[in-house]
Computed example of a mutant assay.
Amino acid sequence: MDKVRIGIIGLGNMGTGHAKYLVNNEVKGAELTAICEFRPDRLEWAKENFGGDIKLFDDLDAFLTSGLIDGVLIATPHYDHPSIAIKAFAAGLHVLCEKPAGVYTKQVREMNEAAKASGKVFSMMYNQRTNPLYKKLKDLVSSGELGEIRRTNWIITNWYRSQSYYDSGGWRATWAGEGGGVLINQDPHQLDLWQWTIDMMPKRVRAFCYFGKHRNIEVEDDVTAFVEYENGATGLFVTTTGEAPGTNRFELSGDRGKIVIEDGKLTFWRLRVSEREFNETYKGGFGQPEVWKCEIPVEGKETSHSGITQNFVDAILHGTPLVAPGEEGIKGLMLSNAMLLSTWTDNWVDLPIDEDLFYEHLQARIKESKSSKEANSYQTLDVSGTSKS
């Protein structure tokens, strides 16, 4: 094989963006050969803009078994990601899935098992892993420059959304339509980077989610979560869609200093000797380790979505290691599920979470969701298996 034939499932905003860079030959070794979409208007748009070289489908099974594709890029609403991926693996296809991996970890675990059994390449569209800032941070942590992690803080509140945004679709910000709010829709990249950059998941979570605090919606729009790690470190994650202006600040404290990523810069306050060594040897009472403020050079550019797709194609053609292995999608989702479950049970939640308990709570909220009926016309699969949104 010298070229990977890719089929896109879902031609909404994200699917359309993926289609454009593929058609423009921005991914070496890839060719967009087919699109599967339920909505006639989007299929007509594809026909008008991409011509007859790309085969269009409104039936998922026919698409998957067409023989026209080697791999799929799933860009449907996230409730559908696992079920479609499982079908694609069963059809012998490689899978690149948009984030989040799904809505609840129980279904994502089934997707991961199907991927493993298939032996096919499976990747997540965690395009922020191509951001040089976070790549450099991961390098500094893994190389030991920061020492043992003591604390992680991420304030990510620059997700401002007005009421008119939520009113633009009856399925938006509902349990039946989207399965959550700011955690599932705006924060998947940060939740992934939070654990990926330090290669460490919390052992337990205590969170306080506020539902419809700033807007007339039924899901969470304001969250503060406290986590504990196995090594004794602690962490804080704060997010909302109701603040303006917002903040995006990721701060890590370690035995050898502090690193902050904010405003597109990475700054390292590096201790000349570790805090542990200073504390053991210093006898002067008041005092602290000598610290150097270092503006760390960050090289390279963020390749974003096309970069992840290129990596996916290279993995198929050349065995290149994946930047965002698909099975890692469950980690960020585990964090958001844990935050919700902690709030719903008003208690600490140990990781890995009780997946059946989370599913039970989620289903209860879906049943009471004000958009249950409307959501079915937007978010669920029709008989052909293609998403309607």
Rank of each mutant, 00 (worst) to 15 (best):
N279L: 14
G242P: 02
N216L: 12
S304L: 08
Y229I: 04
L236S: 12
F237R: 03
E277H: 15
K265G: 13
H305K: 03
G257T: 04
H305F: 15
E243T: 09
R256C: 07
E251A: 08
V291Q: 10
G287E: 11
A233L: 09
Q288H: 11
K265S: 15
A244T: 10
E218D: 08
V219G: 05
L271V: 13
N231K: 02
E302P: 05
E228M: 08
G232W: 11
E299T: 15
V291H: 04
E218C: 09
D255H: 02
G264A: 10
K301M: 14
N231P: 03
G307R: 04
L236G: 05
R276E: 13
Y229E: 08
Y282V: 05
G242V: 04
I296A: 03
H305S: 14
V273Q: 13
K265T: 14
D221P: 00
V273S: 09
N231Q: 07
Q288P: 05
F237V: 01
T234F: 08
T240K: 00
A233D: 09
E280W: 07
C294W: 11
E251Q: 13
K293S: 14
S274V: 05
I261K: 00
H305I: 07
S304T: 13
D255R: 01
V298E: 01
Y229V: 04
G254K: 00
G242H: 03
T234Y: 08
N231D: 06
F250S: 00
L236K: 06
R256S: 02
P245Q: 11
F250W: 04
D222E: 11
G242W: 01
K293C: 12
T239Q: 06
K301I: 14
I259E: 00
W269L: 13
D222C: 12
V273K: 13
P297R: 03
T281V: 10
E251M: 14
P245S: 10
G242S: 08
D263Y: 09
D255G: 09
G284L: 04
L271Y: 15
R256A: 02
Y229G: 09
C294E: 13
E302A: 09
D255M: 02
P297T: 03
E220M: 07
G307E: 03
P245T: 03
G284A: 12
F268C: 00
C294F: 13
T234D: 11
T234A: 08
H305P: 00
L236P: 01
E230R: 15
T267M: 11
E262W: 01
I259K: 02
G246W: 00
